[in-house]
Design a protein around this nucleic acid. Structure first.
Ligand SMILES: [Mn+2]
Ligand SMILES: [Mn+2]
Ligand SMILES: [Zn+2]
Ligand SMILES: [Zn+2]
Lengths: 137, 137
DNA sequence: TTTGACGATGCAACCCGGTTGCAAAGTCAA
DNA sequence: TTGACTTTGCAACCGGGTTGCATCGTCAAA
């Protein structure tokens, strides 16, 4: 359904090129996080730099957000009204050590934190690691 | 106070070499996290691989624990009875984007998390980012 | 229709943190 | 003194990420 992903890009002010549509549709289909490396493997005829810039563009425009999972960054579709102005879908992420998939825990509440006096909090990075329902048991 | 750091190493079953004592004392003095890169700069006449193995040995023996802060790993002294058996001083860490220092938030309680049914939690990684009291204001 | 500006792409090279193989040097006890 | 075992130094490597630069495609002004 190319038309809907074109709209998706347009809504975030991203010019819809072939590559961008492919990457977006890949993210939409898989419903799981993707790293630059995964995209390289998936779109092996494309170039690493192009994929890299595609991700960076998507992220800047508020279409996806990156999560650093022990060394590599994976990217997930934003769930709220993220835009160039900023990302507002702050939530924990779960990384399965079995299948290496990362999923958003959108429903989980981000806990409050008490910092020492004078400290200024800008960002919270919360990664839970373990095994997903398919890999556990 | 070389004698006390020698004991410190001995308590964790680590043979006290010159390099190990230097690294441990550096960690004790600075009371802040150190990355491999920082150690390389501090002990520029030593070798990267040696420092790397020193950190790995310390970590395995429960003397320090590593925290991944956006791409690089920093190491901090353990606060509890960590040993080869495992690390038990699980707590959030604060990374200051001003001075790039990482500190343990030992006093902060690790929050509980509700995972979806069937998920198995092994590890929680919680990094707060912002500005410390010296860099804020 | 031609031209030129501008953004997107491909390619190659680079950076940097981390990691490993291997040989040399050190330690220590038989 | 010898030999086993550990620690160190050096060099090379790895993988993820990033950038400079030339080329290509698109589109609108001339
Ligand atoms: Mn977002
Ligand atoms: Mn510990
Ligand atoms: Zn899994
Ligand atoms: Zn600071």
């Amino acid at each position: 359904m190319k038309h809907s992903s074109e709209k998706h890009l347009a809504q975030h002010g991203i010019h819809p090129t072939a590559m961008r549509l492919l990457v977006l549709e890949y993210l939409l289909d898989n419903r799981t996080a993707a790293s630059l490396g995964q995209l390289e493997r998936e779109f092996y005829r494309s170039d690493k730099a192009t994929l890299y810039r595609t991700l960076k563009t998507f992220e800047k425009k508020g279409l996806i957000h990156g999560v650093n999972v022990g060394g590599t960054t994976v990217y997930l579709l934003c769930r709220e009204n993220c835009s160039e102005e900023g990302h507002f879908d702050v939530h924990p992420h779960f990384f399965c050590t079995g299948c290496a998939k990362t999923i958003c825990l959108s429903q989980a509440k981000m806990p409050r934190f008490d910092l020492p006096e004078g400290f200024d909090l800008h960002e919270v990075n919360l990664i839970l690691k373990g095994r997903c329902d398919e890999c556990a048991g």
